[in-house]
């Protein structure tokens, strides 16, 4: 269809302008700023090339945050994937009453703010008044300092992340599982396939494209959600033990005002998540089963 140029311009210009100012420009400046040494509100920027990145390699706190992020990424992705697939399979295949209700409940964590989730879990993990320790005391286990113990804190955060993510992926898998034709299961029944065989030989291959897509989601969202939760729950503490990628970047750039250094961290995270997504994508390539 043809239309006047001015109409096209008025329709696209505002969106394009906002996008360029508040998204494209800041993204480019992350990369540019990572090459500068720039601290504080002064305008003094010195070009230092890759020095920020070299400093990163020797920064123990950065390496700690890297390790934490990887632990969370691996642990949360695997457990969430397993739980979500298992629940989705149970809810679509088995005859369970109030299926809809389960779906509604499972999705609730997804509509809550990261701050709300952080607050709920801070309360649950409270050493003396929280649910977690009172459950443990029922079976006679000593109270645990969920958020105060340096070696426990990262797992406490992982639990909160799994709680948050499972419902979302479950709903996603459920919708693709319900598209699997019923006749295939009937055929499997006739051949006497067990539940396990049915899941691994029928369901999983047919929803594999969907599972693959969600693996990329896992990487991107786990890096992001871990930041939002850590920032609100522990602030990276105790003593930097729960620091993750983006929270360390935020601390360096915003709290510490080392903008150049902070942005260099940002670049590393960006490249890391991009490379990992590409790698996972390659590694999980299978022949797509078509019907």
């Amino acid at each position: 269809m043809k239309t006047s140029k001015s109409f096209l311009f008025f329709c696209t210009f505002p969106a394009l302008a906002l996008f360029l100012i508040f998204m494209a420009y800041p993204t480019i400046s992350v990369f540019v700023m990572s090459l500068y040494k720039w601290g504080g509100y002064s305008a003094a920027k010195t070009f230092v090339g890759l020095n920020n990145f070299r400093a990163l390699m020797e920064d123990d706190r950065f390496i700690g945050s890297f390790r934490n992020s990887v632990i969370l990424l691996v642990l949360v992705s695997i457990v969430t994937l397993f739980l979500a697939l298992w629940c989705a399979n149970a809810l679509t295949r088995e005859k369970i009453r109030a299926k809809g209700l389960f779906r509604v409940i499972f999705y609730i964590p997804n509509i809550l703010s990261a701050v709300v989730i952080a607050a709920i879990f801070s309360a649950i993990y409270d050493p003396s008044r929280g649910l977690a320790n009172s459950l443990l005391s029922l079976v006679g286990i000593e109270p645990v300092m969920w958020l105060g113990n340096r070696s426990v804190v990262i797992y406490s955060i992982a639990i909160a992340m799994i709680w948050q993510a499972t419902g979302y992926y479950m709903v996603m898998y459920m919708s693709s599982m319900s598209a699997v034709p019923h006749s295939l299961y009937e055929a499997a029944d006739i051949e006497g396939a067990s539940r396990k065989t049915k899941f691994f030989s029928v369901t999983l291959p047919l929803i594999w494209t969907n599972v693959r897509t969600t693996l990329t989601f896992f990487i991107i969202s786990s890096i992001n959600i871990s930041f939002l939760l850590v920032r609100a729950m522990t602030g990276g503490g105790p003593d930097g033990a729960s620091e993750v990628f983006l929270s360390y970047m935020y601390e360096q750039a915003y709290t510490n005002s080392s903008y150049g250094y902070g942005m260099a961290i940002g670049v590393v995270i960006f490249v890391f998540s991009f490379a990992l997504s590409a790698l996972v994508n390659l590694a999980t390539r299978r022949e797509i089963v078509e019907l």
Binding site: M23, S29, V30, Y259, M263, F270
Partner: peptide, 16 residues
């Protein structure tokens, strides 16, 4: 733009 995560660019926007 779908791939740009807000957490990365919040500081540059603030500085701007």
């Amino acid at each position: 733009g779908l791939f740009i995560n807000v957490s990365y660019i919040v500081v540059p926007i603030f500085l701007m």
